[in-house]
């Protein structure tokens, strides 16, 4: 009791004066360096775990397959035999001997066309279907069945229809990616609150104005989750389709490498495919958050 009573005024009297001079000057500098330290720590917290985990898994892989006689290559073998594919993605040494970067771009072009069509048609069809409860009930079972058909099952049909491998591959992408876009767009349109419809009615918006000014922004979160699923499926489908149709794409590269027993090349190609798929997913998600800003509130 007496100790605290004595201490308190002493501290109060002593503290303010030096504190004012000491604090006033270093505060901005310490704030900046603290922010830098915090950023560094955040980066370390985010980057370090995946790096360590990948390193550990590669180490494990190396240990398991290093003994020799294994059917699959070890990471060091892959690096030794196919490291140039990683280091030089964009070389050209002949019509069929080009870098994996070029092959990925060729596949991306097909995905771009097929998925672009699927997004365009899917949003339009979804917007129409979402407007009508009757239509929704009518087409929903059909879509639910069709969307479970594996991409490659469409290939023979599209080859028969188009008689050419390039449009067939694009059609397979299109037909694979379109279902989630349609289904999600329709669900998003159905979920537009009646309030927004009333606003549109009072303003006498034309159907086209309603589409651009109310429907697209209001349903954007739904539409973009559909597009995100769609782009993932499209990338899955292109690899499988190219394995069968040939050409210069990354899928055909895998098939070609398998036929010429270049197992290590296949592992590198998998790395490219995974990284590209990840980038596509993030890209669509990024556009989605930009477009639907504020809508989810």
């Amino acid at each position: 009791m007496t100790v605290t009573a004595l201490k308190r005024p002493a501290a109060a009297a002593a503290a303010p004066r030096p504190a004012a001079t000491v604090h006033a000057i270093p505060r901005p500098r310490s704030a900046a360096s603290a922010r830098a330290a915090r950023l560094g720590r955040a980066a370390a917290a985010n980057v370090l775990p995946p790096v360590l985990v990948v390193a550990a898994l590669l180490g494990l892989w190396q240990l398991l397959l290093a003994g020799g006689g294994a059917a699959l290559p070890s990471p060091i073998e892959i690096w030794q035999q196919s490291g140039d594919l990683i280091l030089e993605p964009f070389y050209v040494a002949g019509t069929q001997d080009i870098g994996l970067g070029w092959r990925v771009l060729t596949s991306l072009e097909r995905v771009g066309i097929g998925f672009g069509l699927a997004a365009f048609v899917g949003i339009a069809v979804g917007a129409v279907i979402g407007q009508s409860a009757w239509l929704m009930r009518g087409v929903d079972p059909l879509f639910q069945v069709l969307r479970t058909v594996p991409p490659l099952a469409w290939l023979p049909i599209s080859l028969a229809a188009f008689m050419d491998s390039r449009p067939s591959a694009i059609f397979v992408i299109f037909i694979t990616a379109i279902w989630p876009v349609i289904i999600n767009t329709a669900a998003g349109v159905r979920a537009i609150p009646q309030d927004y419809r009333n606003v549109a009615a009072v303003l006498r918006l034309s159907p086209l104005e309603f589409f651009w000014k109310i429907m697209v922004p209001a349903a954007a979160p739904y539409i973009f989750s559909g597009l995100r699923i769609g782009v993932g499926l499209a990338w899955l489908a292109i690899v499988a389709a190219e394995m069968l149709t040939g050409g210069v794409g990354i899928g055909f590269f895998i098939w070609d490498a398998w036929n010429s027993s270049m197992l290590t090349d296949i592992f590198v190609a998998l790395l490219y495919i995974g990284a590209t798929g990840f980038a596509l997913d993030r890209l669509v998600a990024f556009i989605g958050t930009k477009v639907s800003r504020g809508t989810t509130v």
Partner: peptide, 20 residues
């Protein structure tokens, strides 16, 4: 017999468009 801007409504729950 149809809605129009000559009869503007202030809605119970404001109904502002959140993305604008």
């Amino acid at each position: 017999n149809a809605p129009g801007p000559d009869r503007a409504v202030v809605f119970q729950n404001h109904s502002l468009l959140p993305w604008l």
